[in-house]
Amino acid sequence: MSALVSTSSLVHEFTSHRSSHVALDHVTVEIEKGTSLGVVGESGSGKTTLVRCILGLLRPTGGSVRFDGAEVARMSTKELRAMRRRVGMVFQNPVMALDPRMTVEESIAEPLRVHTRLRGADLQRAIGEALDAVALPQAHRTRLPHQLSGGQCQRVGIARALATHPELVILDEPTSALDVSVQAQILNLLTDLRVERDLTFVMISHSLDVVRYLSDDVVVMLQGRIVEEGTAAEVLAAPQHEYTQNLVAACPTVESDSLRFALQSREETSK
């Protein structure tokens, strides 16, 4: 197995005229082909910066990002574009990530126009296949985003990300804006597509349940650094780092106990 994406000692520092802020502090990850990595952390932990560096949208201050063996920072515009064809991205807010004035088919056509030579009937066929893949009826082609539900918009977002048949899909909180029943539909869809197309996933999420469901491996980030990594099952079942333990404890689930017990026992011990 070879790594599709790897970063070594990646550093990214944001500098404004007065202060500087280290968003990534020597981050090293290896993402094997066909695996699914979950990146967990709270806002400001550097998750998004990491993804933007992998995509080549941000230039790292130090260290390197390699995509399929090639150094992203040294890629020419043409090579960068060729790389982006092999990477699809799904965004957090499905409605806002679509241009409000573009129809479903125009949105899906956008990456196809940029990355392929498909035009005319071939382009239409590719759009049709992309819609089929996410189980959206062809009748939705001419709809605008506001005429669709949040879940349908996210299906369009996934269709667009997969239209060019990428190998790597970056998922930025793909279900956090959706209701649970819709979240379940989208998670099932992503699982199916991953198996069918042998995709590699990198998913940013703050929901540990979603990470446990969709990811093989997980890295936990805190203030730009990786504080814990391992297989999702192990890390989430027996977290080692204090921060991960807090995170796991903080996620309320239907199976966990009421906070009131925690509260009562704490008050009793303090008395």
């Binding site: 649970v180 029943s181 379940a184 349940d209 446990r212 239907v254 199976e255």
Partner: peptide
Amino acid sequence: GALPGQSGGRLRSI
């Protein structure tokens, strides 16, 4: 049933 819980497996969606 739609919650991705500990168990894994296909999620029941509505």
